[in-house]
Simulated assay, not measured.
Amino acid sequence: MNPTIANKKPALSGSLLLVGHEKRMRARLCAILSDLAYTADALACTSCPDEVNALLVERPFDMALVDSSMSTVNGIDLIRAMHAHDPRLPIVVISDPAAEADVIGALRAGASGYLLKESDDTELSVCLRSALRGGMPIDPFIARLVLQSLVAAEPQAACSPPTGRTRAAASGPLSARELDILRCIDRGATNREIAAALSLSKLTIESHVKNIHKKLGVKTRTQATFEARRYGLLN
């Protein structure tokens, strides 16, 4: 088979609606969607609920990508309204890690997928392609939150694998130094900045960060601070 033909992107018709994304994330999504054969003219962007309604009336969309963490709009209510307007419209949330109630609320309101901004471009591209084909992409971290919610509702929840505070306790509590580093991470400091602030080497900080991730059962810095806040370690 001709490799040029094999690698050719499928032509996509229609439009996509981007709701609530800040400038940098919007630029990322536009680049990713361009790789999926969506031109700039096929993308509609807004953060205004009234404008969302007008756009949905004006033309059909292949999919809506919604940032549910908008500060001026209730993302769950907006998703619910969009789903009520067109139950067939795939609505994929692309947001920061959120509380369990917010994740469940978005899915119950009609979201057909839930991804995290911290995912790399390749991951987002694969997930969005899946959504366009009728899939329901869920970030593994979000999937774990949903499963925790389901397991917690069962009488046998105590037999489930440890998570959150229980996981941290099972792997060993965070040390005072690890908590100091976690607080710095929560403030947005890099490993180099943390090393300078604590008079430690960058390699030492990297080692502590790996231990923090292991104890909290997470893979990224954002997830670490989210879990720590959720279980009161940063309060």
Rank of each mutant, 00 (worst) to 15 (best):
K214N: 11
C184L: 15
F226P: 01
I212S: 03
R177E: 15
A195G: 07
G164E: 01
L174V: 05
E227Y: 00
T166I: 10
S160L: 00
T204Y: 10
L200Y: 06
G217K: 03
E227K: 00
T166V: 06
S207K: 15
L216S: 00
D180F: 14
A168R: 12
G164L: 02
R167Y: 02
R177I: 13
S199H: 15
R192D: 07
A197T: 14
K214R: 15
T222G: 10
S207M: 11
T220Q: 04
R183C: 10
A176V: 10
L203G: 10
A195M: 09
R192Q: 12
N191Q: 14
A176R: 13
K210E: 09
G188D: 07
E227P: 00
I205K: 04
C184F: 13
A197H: 15
E206S: 15
L179H: 04
S171Q: 15
F226R: 09
A197G: 12
K214C: 12
G172F: 08
V218E: 01
T222W: 03
E193R: 11
H213G: 01
A189V: 03
E206A: 13
H208C: 07
S199G: 12
T163K: 04
T204S: 14
A170M: 05
D186N: 14
T222H: 01
P161V: 01
R192F: 02
S201L: 06
L179V: 13
T166M: 09
R165N: 05
L174G: 03
T204Q: 14
E206F: 08
L200T: 02
K210V: 08
A176T: 14
R177A: 14
R165I: 06
K219A: 00
G188N: 05
S201Y: 06
I194E: 04
T220E: 01
I212K: 01
I185W: 08
L203D: 13
P162M: 03
E206L: 10
I212T: 03
T166F: 08
S171D: 11
L198C: 07
E193M: 12
I185E: 08
S175D: 11
E206Y: 09
A196N: 09
E227V: 04
N191F: 11
T163A: 06
N211M: 12
F226Y: 09
G188R: 09
K215A: 05
H208F: 08
S160V: 00
E227W: 00
R187L: 12
S175K: 11
E178P: 02
T190S: 11
P162V: 04
S199E: 14
T225F: 05
T225A: 00
